[in-house]
Simulated scan of single mutants.
Amino acid sequence: MLQLRHSVARSTLRAVCLASASLWVVGSGALTVRAEAAPVPVVQGAFASDRLSVEVVGDGPDVVLIPGLASSREVWRAEADRLQPTHRVHLVQLAGFAGAPWTHGDGPFVEPVVGDLARYIREAGLERPAVIGHSMGGLSALLLAQGHPGLVGKVMSVDSLPFFSAMFGPQVTPESARPFAAQAAAGILSADEAGFRTHQAQGAIGLARDPATREAIVDWSMATDRRAMATAMSEVMTTDARPGLAAMTTPVWAVYASDADGGAPAAMADAVWGREYAALPGVRLIRVDDARHFIMADRPERFAELVDQFLAD
């Protein structure tokens, strides 16, 4: 989820949403950053979708990795390479993001993706896989577990809230966020190429520490279909998974970032994540210090340690 530090300087929800609208993108920091097109996916079985593709590597218990908005699956590459000797890893690429084809205009985004994730798990014959999602991918993982609890073994959400716009205050609702979501989407669509790139480069500084990661953030977002990005951003800003938390039986780990030097202060991060996940029975909240939004990039060794604990739990 976008760094909480944006909320410190907010004057209105509108200002913050418009400032951050085009920045919910990916990088891989200390991971191997690859801004070029992703390799041709090896898709499990005969699964076909115009909403996502899946590259499968390794052998063993199944792990599904979902990237965030405007992300390439390459954000997970180092983690997939590390896991594949012991796990079968399913790297998801969402249509419209980071150069993947998009054929749906300004049609719906999140719900069809969640539906096809569920269909993939069924058709590929996965048995209650672990699902790890970053940012928007974390929200998608929560929605997947809520809508299809029998398909998902466990969920790790990485710097992701069940209601994105709650970072702007506990009083915000999907309805009150709706006008600002529309304005954020309009800003994404109307920006010229040069201005959009500049905005992405400025925002990337707050999302990752590593210069190579910041470059990848810009490259991937520039390769993303603007209509897909605008629609996804608008939907995420107005999608509230909190009402379904109390009934969830799927184990959830919520890993979130804190960075005293330009990121979310620890006390603020603790307060927001604790408040927003309060209704989820048994949730395990884990703060990772000295990291910004891309925890897997800023603290790769710590993140790998957490993933191993999560998978073994």
Rank of each mutant, 00 (worst) to 15 (best):
L4G: 15
L4Y: 08
R5V: 13
V8G: 04
A9W: 07
A9R: 12
S11N: 12
L13Y: 02
A15Q: 15
A15N: 15
A15D: 15
L18I: 04
A19P: 00
A21I: 01
G27C: 12
S28K: 00
S28Q: 05
A35Y: 06
E36S: 10
E36N: 10
P39R: 04
P41C: 00
V43E: 09
G45D: 14
G45L: 03
G45A: 15
R51F: 14
E55M: 02
V57T: 14
G58T: 07
G58L: 04
D59A: 13
P61M: 04
L65W: 11
L65G: 12
I66A: 09
L69T: 15
A70Y: 06
S71M: 09
R73Y: 04
V75Y: 10
R77D: 14
D81S: 11
L83T: 11
P85K: 11
R88M: 09
H90Q: 10
H90K: 09
H90W: 14
G96K: 06
G99V: 05
A100T: 05
G105H: 08
G105W: 10
F109E: 02
F109Y: 14
E111Y: 01
E111V: 15
D116M: 03
A118D: 06
A118H: 00
A118T: 00
I121H: 07
R122T: 15
E123R: 12
E123M: 08
E123H: 07
E127Q: 14
I132A: 04
H134P: 00
M136H: 06
G138C: 02
L142D: 03
L143S: 04
Q146M: 15
G147K: 13
H148C: 13
G150H: 09
G150A: 12
L151V: 04
L151Y: 11
G153K: 07
S157W: 00
F163Q: 00
F164Q: 05
F164S: 05
A166C: 03
F168H: 12
F168D: 03
Q171T: 08
S176H: 08
A177Q: 05
R178A: 15
F180I: 07
A181I: 08
A184N: 08
L189F: 03
S190F: 01
A191P: 04
A194P: 02
G195D: 06
T198Y: 03
T198C: 01
H199M: 05
Q200E: 08
A201R: 14
G203N: 07
A204P: 08
A208M: 13
V218T: 15
V218W: 12
V218R: 01
D219Q: 15
T224K: 11
D225P: 01
D225C: 02
M229E: 05
M229I: 06
A230I: 08
A232T: 14
A232I: 00
M233W: 09
T238G: 08
T238E: 10
A241S: 08
R242I: 10
G244K: 09
M248Y: 09
T250Y: 05
W253I: 00
A257D: 09
D259Q: 02
A260I: 01
A260Q: 11
D261E: 14
D261V: 11
G263S: 08
P265H: 12
E276A: 07
P281R: 12
P281I: 11
R284N: 05
R287I: 05
R287K: 14
V288A: 03
R292L: 15
H293P: 00
R299Y: 04
P300W: 12
F303M: 06
F310A: 04
L311E: 07
A312Y: 01
A312R: 13
